[in-house]
Design a protein around this nucleic acid. Structure first.
Lengths: 123, 123
DNA sequence: GGACGCTAGATGCGTACGCATCTAATGTCC
DNA sequence: GGACATTAGATGCGTACGCATCTAGCGTCC
């Protein structure tokens, strides 16, 4: 079997699945919870980690966003009151991101939406 | 095994793979051929089909883009001289998209780049 | 301790996106 | 054949993105 064909096929399938699921998820999260996919995923990273207070960089490491996109995403979450920024004591360049109660509960609701969408569209 | 956990894991893996590959592909195509990922994928759809002249709608059906995004992508390709729009005779609302020679050869070069990137990053 | 490089994040800027709407052509029903 | 719904595609608008750059704090070497 032609290796190029195989690769391209796998890539197209990845492309298609991703856009299918991401599209539905984006719309559902926005509609039901006023959250961007990236915003939700950011909250999700914070909840998942046992320590719910993380450096921007640590977040960036486990996410797919560029540094600038993450910075703005966190900015939006701060504006929405879902997370708070705290300065790091020992290194004042650093920024901790911390879930607020509102953030935690909003994530918890949104989780149900995610589950439903994934169950339906993640073949 | 918790079905939610499983789904979410698969989703995260999809999210990560997609962004990894798409990011590298986007950059490589831009760098080496001045093409957007969507532009390349559009060309690719045209080349792949035996008939290299297709209605916008047919293109939209096999792509992941919204109708408006596709329309603009084709617009950019037209500006770049890689495809041409032709009006459909029998239904003048319809638009055919047709590869130019330049478009065909540009796609052919870019294909090598895609292969290299996929081989390296599509785990 | 002052100059210089380096790192963490924020921000200016340009771009592709989706949604909603618009335009123009087609089809339908009387 | 004229009014009205429908369809194909283009376009206005607002938004999230990545890249490049900026700012501020840190570290090092003399």
């Amino acid at each position: 079997m032609d290796p190029e064909e195989t690769l391209v096929e796998r890539w197209r399938s990845l492309l298609t699945s991703y856009n299918e699921v991401a599209g539905h998820l984006e719309r559902a999260l926005q509609e039901a919870h006023g959250l961007t996919l990236s915003e939700f995923e950011t909250l999700d990273r914070l909840v998942t980690q046992e320590c719910e207070k993380r450096r921007m960089q640590d977040l960036a490491d486990v996410m797919y966003l560029s540094q600038s996109a993450l910075s703005r995403t966190v900015g939006r979450l701060v504006t929405g009151g879902l997370v708070a920024r705290t300065h790091c004591e020992t290194d004042r360049r650093g920024v901790f991101v911390e879930l607020t109660d509102e953030g935690r509960s909003r994530h918890d609701e949104a989780r149900k939406t995610r589950l439903a969408v994934l169950a339906e569209h993640l073949k």
